[in-house]
């Protein structure tokens, strides 16, 4: 992981999210640049996940626009998808496939980082689980397998929804370490978490949706 990313900018301009006639948030603006992180906070149901889904382009904002290097992400479409990696509530791994098969597939859906799959599993402390069918992994191991996707593909912008769910303290520090390397490399991060996220970078924008 010695690569550095080319500088890029993500900019949200006055975005709003309305769900079932309820305004979750509006007039939300922020800018994210290389090496910076945005930490989304708020109570349950305050729209944290909705905001992240809007940022990765699954959902459209009800108002406002999101720009990647100055271009609207809906115009960029697949070009923007190449720059992002998303790990949501659902792990996005197939339980009937082995750990290795899951990552081979994930790699084909992005830009390969050049890191071997066995090395990525090793880094997530899943070494030796290559051929294990994912259904036989524990919840924490599944989560780490889902996060291993971030290592086999090369995406400057990581969008993570509660990445620490079902991880133990050791697993959490593993992921924090991975995130810190990513940010030091000039990567970007948008994250929600109920746990405090231990980030080295001072460049953290906090957005509290409950205020």
């Amino acid at each position: 992981m010695n690569h550095t990313y080319t500088a890029a900018t993500l900019e949200a301009r006055d975005i709003a999210c309305i769900r079932d006639d309820r305004t979750l948030f509006d007039k939300l603006s922020f800018t994210l640049e290389a090496g910076q992180a945005v930490l989304v906070e708020g109570r349950n149901g305050s729209g944290k996940t909705s905001l992240l889904r809007i940022l990765c382009g699954i959902r459209q904002p009800d108002e406002g626009t999101i720009h990647w290097n100055g271009g609207d992400i809906y115009r960029l479409a697949t070009g923007y998808n190449a720059a992002t990696a998303w790990v949501g509530h659902k792990d996005g791994i197939k339980l009937e496939l082995s750990a290795e098969e899951n990552l081979v597939f994930a790699r084909s859906l992005g830009t390969p980082s050049g890191l071997e799959i066995s090395d990525a599993l090793e880094a997530m402390e899943l070494g030796g689980f290559d051929d294990v069918i994912a259904i036989n992994l524990s919840a924490g191991q599944k989560r780490r397998l889902a996060l291993a996707r971030l290592l086999v593909t090369r995406s400057p912008l990581w969008i993570l929804d509660e990445p620490f769910t079902s991880l133990d303290t050791h697993g959490i520090s593993l992921i924090e370490n991975m995130i810190n390397i990513h940010l030091a490399d000039g990567g970007m991060l948008a994250v929600t978490s109920h746990h405090p996220v231990g980030l080295d970078s001072a460049d953290i924008t906090r957005i509290n949706l409950s205020e």
């Binding site: 382009g57 699954i58 998808n81 992002t84 996005g92 791994i93 197939k94 339980l95 994930a106």
Partner: peptide, 18 residues
């Protein structure tokens, strides 16, 4: 169905391929 349930569908949707 299964791709929707386990979140793989989101990954497909966000791939850089058409």
């Amino acid at each position: 169905r299964s791709d929707f349930d386990d979140g793989s569908l989101e990954q497909l949707l966000l791939s850089p391929h058409p």
